[in-house]
Computed example of a mutant assay.
Amino acid sequence: MVGAGPAGLATAVPRSRTSLRRCLTCGPVGCCDDSPSRHATQHFHASAHPVIKSFEMSAP
C-alpha cells in the first residue's frame, strides 16, 4: 500500500521495485516514471523545480 505524505508524495514502500528521485531544490523523494503514480513528475509540474537526482537506497 502507498500512502500520501507531505506534498502528496509516496510514503510507503511500493510492492514492486520502482526508481526513486529526490528534488534537489526542496528535498522530497518520489517515485519516477516507471511507477504508475509518477510522484516525482507530479512534483516537478506542481513546483517547477527542474533538478532531481536518483535516490536509491542500497543494502549495506
Rank of each mutant, 00 (worst) to 15 (best):
V13Q: 14
T41A: 15
C31N: 05
V51E: 12
R38S: 04
L24I: 04
P28Y: 02
L20R: 15
L9V: 15
L24G: 04
S58C: 06
M1Y: 07
H45G: 02
V51A: 11
T41F: 14
A4N: 01
M1K: 04
R22F: 01
C23G: 09
A40F: 05
G30C: 02
K53Y: 02
V13A: 13
H43R: 04
P50C: 11
E56M: 07
P50A: 15
S19I: 12
P50Q: 12
S47A: 08
F44G: 04
A4Q: 04
G8F: 10
V13D: 13
V51N: 07
H39L: 11
A46M: 02
G30W: 00
C23E: 11
G5R: 05
V13Y: 11
A10M: 02
A7T: 09
C31V: 03
V2G: 01
G30V: 01
R17S: 13
A48F: 07
H43T: 05
L24S: 07
P28C: 04
C31G: 02
R38Y: 00
G27C: 02
I52V: 14
S16W: 13
V29I: 12
V2W: 03
S54L: 12
T11V: 14
A40V: 10
A7N: 13
A4T: 02
C31F: 03
V29K: 03
H43P: 03
D33V: 08
A12Q: 13
A48E: 11
P14L: 13
A59E: 12
V13G: 05
A4F: 02
Q42G: 13
V29H: 03
D34W: 05
S16N: 13
P60R: 11
V29T: 09
E56F: 04
A10T: 06
T41R: 15
S37W: 03
A59I: 11
P60D: 09
S16E: 15
G30L: 02
L20H: 15
C26H: 07
G30K: 01
V29S: 01
V13I: 11
L9N: 12
M57I: 09
A7K: 05
P14I: 08
H45W: 07
S19V: 14
M1L: 05
K53M: 11
H49E: 08
